[in-house]
Every structure is written in C-alpha cells, then in structure tokens.
Design a protein around this nucleic acid. Structure first.
Lengths: 237, 237
DNA sequence: TAATTAATGTGTTTTTGGTACATATTTGCA
DNA sequence: TGCAAATATGTACCAAAAACACATTAATTA
C-alpha cells in the first residue's frame, strides 16, 4: 500500500524516495481546551513528561492512530483525558517545523475546544491536569505557547460570528454572565446596554421566563440557547 | 529517535503502540494556486496520475520530506511545478479523513497561493498543468474539490482584511482592474464609486502619477502597493 | 417597615460607515 | 468638432455602532 502512495504522488524530478523516508513523520493533534469561571478564561494544561521540558506545562495531545480521522483523534484525547464527550471542537492550524519536537519529526494539528468547567465534572486529577488563567500563561513546552496564542486569536474572531461562546456556560445563564465571558475572551470592557442590543440582534438566545436565584440584588432573567442554533453555525472541522 | 517520541507522547491508558503503527501516516501538502485574468479567477490544476481518478484534475501536491518544514514543502512544490519563488502562501486547513486517499493513509495540509498569471512566466507545459476558471471546476480527484472550495472561501475573507489581492495583479494597476479582481473573487458586482472610497480608506495603495496606455478611452491612473504594506498584514503560515 | 444598596432593564442621541445614485471630465476616434 | 466610453468625484439617505441616563427590582439593614 505505501508503495502505491509513493508511486501516485511522486514527481519525476525528485530523487527516488524510499518507504522509510516517507513514513518518518509522526502526526499528532493538540487540544487547546478553554473554560470560563468568574471573569477569567482558563486553559487546561498538563505537566510535560519530557525531560527537555521538565517543570513546564503543555497542551493535551497525542499521536494520531493510522485508522482514525484527525477529528476523531481530538475527540479521543478529550474523552481520555477529561471524560467529556460531545464537546465543541474546531481546527485551527497545523504546525510543521522540522525541529518543533525535540525527539523527532512530529507535525501537529491544533484544535480548540470549549467546555463548561463550572458544571462538567472532569477527571482532572487522574491525569495531572489543571486549569490555568490564559492571560497568566507565559511559557509552555514545545511551540505550545504559540499554538495557544493562535487558538485564542481564532476564538476571539469566532465568538463574534457564531454562538459557540455558550459552550463555556451552563444551559441557563444571565446576560451579565454572558457579557463577562465575552469580556474575558476579548480582553475588553463592554457597555452593558450596547452589548444587550448586539446580542438581541444576533437572535441566538431566548428568555426562559425564569430568574436568577441566590443573588443579593435584583435577579436577572435567565436565557438559553435557541434550539437549532448551533447547527446553523457549524465549524469546519 | 522514534522510540523517544512514542515514549514522550504515550498515555498509560492506551494500548502499547509500535513504531510501525505510528509511522504509517503519510503527510502531504496541496497548493491551491489562484490566478486572475480578464474578469475571471483561475486555479492551476494538473491531470491526476492515479488510475482511480483517470481523466480528473487534481491540485498540485506532494509528500512532505522528513527534513523540510510544512511551509518549505509548499514553496518547493510551487518552485518545482511553476518555477516561481517568493509567492504568497497561506495555510488554510488540514484534511485528515482516514480514507481520503485511495492508496493509503495520507493527511494533507492545504495552502493557497496567489500569483500574477499575466506577467509571470510559468513552466506550465512541462508538467501538464493548466489554468481553469474556478467557477467552472465541478469535479476533482480525491477531496480536492472540497479543498478548493474552502480555500476560495478563505480567500474571500482575507481579501477584505489584507492587501493580498495585489499579488494577483502586476505591480502597476488601475482601480478598474483592481475592482474586477475583487468582483471575480467575491462573485458579486460592486459599485465603482463606493468601491473606490472603500479602497481609499484602507490606505493600501498609492497613485503613481502615471496613466494607463493603449486603451481606447480615457486612461485611468495607475496605482501601486504602498511600501511596507505586505509586512503589516502577514499571513500565519 | 422604610431607606439603602446593587444590581437589572430599557431607552435616546450622536457618530460612523455603508449604500444608492448623478454629473462633470478626459481621451480616442469617426 | 462631436460622439463614445471610459475615469473621477460628490451628495443624500439609511443602518449600525458608540456614548450616555434613568427608572425598576429584590435583598439587606437601620
């Protein structure tokens, strides 16, 4: 089978290539898993188990198996490390520098994922994972800081176009909470009145006719995602 | 070396993996090379040399060598197939379905490229390449139609944000030509007066104080890219 | 129980950006 | 010299975004 690939893709001008030289690149995926809590955007990181990067954190990644799609591999990582299924996942970029991995040639495709860290129960301790505030992450193993930054940038763009931000919140939420998530992601303060108008125009959420509980001030209305909305704004995986 | 990669990336829960199973994925890049001529957006295609896809065209792609960056591989393809160097290149997406290549597991990263097909001399005939109007391309080998469509979509987004569209034109161009390229890419007709205002605001180009020649009507002013502009709007390769 | 506090909820005005549209100007050519 | 076919530019109108203010509600407390 490999022989056929080589044959089909080879170009007469290029020197003859052997099976060995072609299948010397490992393929991995890395997941940037975002969560939100109390005005802060978090990212899920693990301790790097590579001696070169001792003491540093890294993203959650793994090599892709020969019989799984790239997307499947990302879902598998999320499942294995956090126990979560049906999470939001979006491809961002593929990083392919020759020396990006100290142990050999590994190209990696980065995905970002959004989960409701306040209410989803994660198997975090089992895998030595921890949540870190994104704005405090200054150093990571490999080129993972660059990957994180690019994923954050893409997230910032996407939240204006699609209702994906709601994956970071519980099913019922107030407009104040929603605004706080936007502010945490975009790193800016927003005007409450203009923000509400902007959200209203997008028509992503509906009033559930219920109110917040256990707040020591006037309770806000609770909203939920309008049904079918997520399907209307699919990512390209 | 491969052993170290496996060790460093392996996860205790996963069954033990062998070198063989990890290095069974081939990595390729595919280039969607866009050109513009006479109100039409073109894409450079070659005849597929795979028997499964006899008679169909495909994008220009090749396997990535173990010692070259992903970006390098794309530049190499452009150089080998067209003779062009220093072309604009931007990564779009990585396609990783298990069965996307009939001969085996190949994941591919798609790039798009913009070249001035009217004035750059290409070694097209040598490689059985040809330009095809993008809007007439209905079928391609592999998943290349999907790749082409996604690249076009990304191009449509990018041309509004950055002056990359100028790579499709010669160094000196009129506003009418520029508008035609926008119309070809976006697939819409634009109002000439509003278009000019929009371009003026972006501040990408400057008046060269020269006029078109050999036109049978009032000649338009010729413009050129403002210096340093491309550096201010770099793609993320 | 009335006053206070700390939020929510909903305007209005102003500015900016985009769209629709019209007229004067310049060159080549008959 | 006038006509054809463009270029070049300006104005009126509308929609969206930004700046900004006030009334309302529930919990708390004096």
């Amino acid at each position: 089978m490999p022989e056929r690939i080589i044959k089909s893709l080879k170009n007469a001008e290029i020197e003859k290539k052997t099976h060995q030289s072609y299948f010397n690149i490992a393929v991995s995926v890395d997941c940037v898993i975002f969560g939100y809590d109390n005005h802060e955007l978090y990212v899920l990181l693990k301790q790097s188990d590579l001696e070169e990067f001792q003491g540093l954190n890294s993203l959650l990644g793994d090599l892709v198996k020969p019989n799984e799609d790239l997307t499947e591999a990302s879902f598998r990582i999320l499942w294995e490390r956090t126990g979560l299924q049906h999470v939001y996942l979006e491809q961002v970029h593929t990083f392919g520098k020759v020396h990006r991995h100290p142990s050999g040639r590994v190209i990696t495709t980065a995905y970002f994922s959004l989960i409701d860290m306040q209410h989803q129960q994660l198997n975090i301790s089992k895998h030595q994972l921890d949540w870190y505030p994104v704005r405090k992450v200054k150093q990571l193993a490999f080129d993972h800081l660059e990957i994180l930054q690019l994923c954050l940038q893409q997230l910032q763009q996407r939240v204006m176009e699609r209702p994906i931000i709601l994956h970071l919140l519980p099913p019922l939420f107030s407009l104040r909470e929603l605004q706080s998530v936007y502010e945490a992601i975009l790193g800016v303060e927003l005007d409450r009145r203009n923000f509400r108008k902007k959200i209203a125009v997008k028509d992503w959420i509906i009033d559930t006719q219920t109110l917040e509980r256990e707040v020591s001030h006037r309770p806000g209305k609770l909203y939920k995602l309008k049904s079918g909305m997520m399907n209307n704004y699919r990512p390209y995986q």
